[in-house]
């Protein structure tokens, strides 16, 4: 516990950590600004202008409806010569409903919560970065060698740093989430657009925020592990970027089966309580070609949590084993 207290103090005293805290609050304020903008109703003049365009379209549709449908059906028939399944939905033409023209009204209960969860990923990345710099600063400066001449039990040294970073990011992320959530709610409330925030929705939001906090602790731990492994902040960030490019982007495109295990998908599932990903499925069509469509697959909250926990444990343990055996310069 003594080591943990000292490491927590060092975490708190680091200038970069303080800047990170300021950055987290700044991101939260951006979230609030976005919520304010989204919930602001359109000015009456703009609504009038859109209404005029809408009326014009309705009049045009009423006047030329039969002609447009006939043209559409002709084009559909031409297309069906090559692809019998072609369907232009000609009967559904027209200007549509007025509500579609002015857009649905955003509310805190849907768009607001969704934005909080999306911005939450930024806080996870921030926690990762803070964990990396916390560990790598010590190894790259060589101060770890000096530290070990005072406390040679490497296992204790390692886990105290990991625990300190995980605990240290919690107040930072908690404050940022509190500012972002309360500020967003206020922004929607000002415009009377909080929507139907039922007790169940508040509970879901609370759990989601709690999972974000837990996730930030896990990401900070991964950051420390990477920092200790690579010994340089730049190298650790390089590993993170390489992971995203090679695995999350190219790997997912090349191997459909990989998508279920992507960090991005599972993190989203953990934060939002579930996630979906699409896989393109192609089958031979009657005309001899391929008929392709996207099929959605769900990733559960439980899977997201297990994948994140598993990744954290594996990276932390590998880094601990390396640190235990590695010569310190």
């Amino acid at each position: 516990m003594r080591l943990l207290r000292v490491e927590l103090r060092r975490f708190r005293l680091r200038a970069l950590i303080r800047w990170g805290a300021v950055g987290a609050v700044a991101v939260a304020l951006l979230l609030v600004a976005g919520a304010f903008q989204t919930s602001t109703p359109l000015p009456q003049a703009q609504i009038d202008e859109i209404r005029a365009q809408y009326d014009e379209q309705v009049a045009d549709w009423d006047a030329h409806k039969d002609e447009y449908i006939a043209d559409c059906k002709q084009q559909e028939a031409d297309a069906q010569e090559a692809d019998p399944s072609a369907d232009y939905a000609c009967e559904q033409g027209g200007p549509g409903a007025w509500e579609d023209w002015i857009g649905g009204t955003s509310s805190f209960s849907d768009a607001g919560i969704s934005s909080i969860q999306s911005f939450g990923v930024v806080f996870l990345l921030l926690a990762l970065f803070l964990g990396i710099t916390f560990a790598a600063a010590e190894t790259s400066s060589g101060a770890i060698g000096n530290w070990l001449t005072f406390e040679p039990r490497r296992r204790r040294v390692y886990w105290s740093k990991l625990a300190a970073a995980s605990l240290g990011v919690l107040p930072i992320v908690a404050v940022a989430l509190a500012v972002g959530t309360a500020g967003s709610w206020l922004a929607y409330e000002v415009h009377d657009a909080t929507g139907s925030m039922t007790a169940a929705l508040w509970t879901d939001l609370g759990w989601s925020l709690g999972r974000l906090l837990l996730g930030s602790a896990a990401f900070a731990a991964i950051g420390v592990a990477l920092g200790m492994l690579t010994r340089h902040t730049a190298a650790a960030l390089g590993v993170v970027v390489a992971w995203f490019v090679v695995v999350e982007l190219f790997g997912a495109n090349m191997l459909d089966g990989l998508q279920r295990w992507l960090l991005v998908v599972n993190t989203e599932a953990w934060v939002a309580g579930g996630a979906t990903y699409s896989v393109e499925t192609c089958t031979p069509s009657d005309g001899g070609g391929l008929s392709c469509s996207y099929v959605d697959h769900a990733v559960s909250l439980a899977q997201g949590g297990l994948v994140l926990a598993g990744l954290t444990i594996v990276v932390a343990v590998v880094s601990a084993l390396v640190f235990r055996r590695r010569d310190v310069a």
Partner: peptide, 16 residues
């Protein structure tokens, strides 16, 4: 280790 004090090569502390 409590009875051993050491300076190995250049001293290395937290620079900031």
């Amino acid at each position: 280790v409590g009875r051993v004090g050491a300076i190995v090569e250049q001293p290395k502390f937290f620079p900031s």
